[in-house]
Amino acid sequence: MTPLNRKKERLDGLAASTAAPAAGQAGGVDVMDPVDPVGEAGAVRDAEGVSLLASAWRRLRRNPMFIIGAVLVALFILVAVFAPLLAPHAPDDRPLIGQISASTNPIPKAQDGFPLGGDEKGRDLLSRLIYGSRQTLIVGVLATLGGLAGGVTLGTLAGAFGGWVDSVVMRVVDVLLSLPSILLAITIASLASQPSQWTVIVAIAIVQVPVFARLLRGSMLAQRSSDHVLAARSLGVKRSAIVFRHMLPNSLGPVFVQSTLALSVSIIEAAALSFLGLGNPDDSKAEWGQMLGAAQNLFDLYPHIAFWPAACIVVVSLGFTLMGESMREALDPKSRR
């Protein structure tokens, strides 16, 4: 009885919400009059009158996966932005240096004011974790943006021109994709004579390019044979306008979703490169991958100094993955309704 009532209420609500704009637009004119164009306007907000984005957002809001991901990402960004306020100490401060003795106590224990203890140089582990989020955010975002820019350029070239341009670009992309991404990133990063934060960013950006390029090229090709592109061509619209106004904006959706997923990959790969010592050699600015690398020697006796940065990396990239996956699902027309 109760569920039935609830269903009825929902239907009534729906009816009211569709009737309201109809009445508003009809402006007192008989809505049923078939030849009156104003009556036609009454039917405007039909089922498909809800925009793709709006309906995707509606489904996202109810998806627990998306909420968890979004909360994790939001927390991560807040921590990164407000790191100086949240962290009790500067990342290169060494308040615990006095407690370290190489043979008996290489790692300061957790104590008052230092809930996670210190690291091998007497710095506060918690503060370094908090500051580390900044490096991770910068590297992740810049590397993804770089990959996005390169991928969109190549994908647009291939999708817009087709023919031999498409073949050449896609063969290059195939070659890049055939190499394991981390191996490629390591190769590119080790080419730099002086490893720094930037070599990591560039290396990861290059690794991301082929993924974006292939994705964009695919949806550009689909757009090229679409009805609205044919209609635009039938009106003599210039080729550049067709590419940039009609094909590209309609192809970017999946690319943007992919970039959320790419953020998580970037973060993991940046950590991996730093872990291998291909990142910034200067450890005064904390970085999670670097901290993980530094923890290797003492991991057997003090697993917690490896656990915390690793956990941060996993949680943040999980957040981006959950968000990206649920967005992709929500925007996928096949899974709609």
């Binding site: 044919l230 635009a232 039938s234 003599g236 080729r239």
Partner: peptide, 22 residues
């Protein structure tokens, strides 16, 4: 291309898919 739309134009079957959604 210069003539299409200026001298000769065309209307298609499916109005939704023939308009650019964005």
């Amino acid at each position: 291309r210069d003539r299409r739309g200026r001298d000769v134009a065309m209307i298609f079957q499916d109005p939704l898919s023939s308009l650019n959604p964005v």
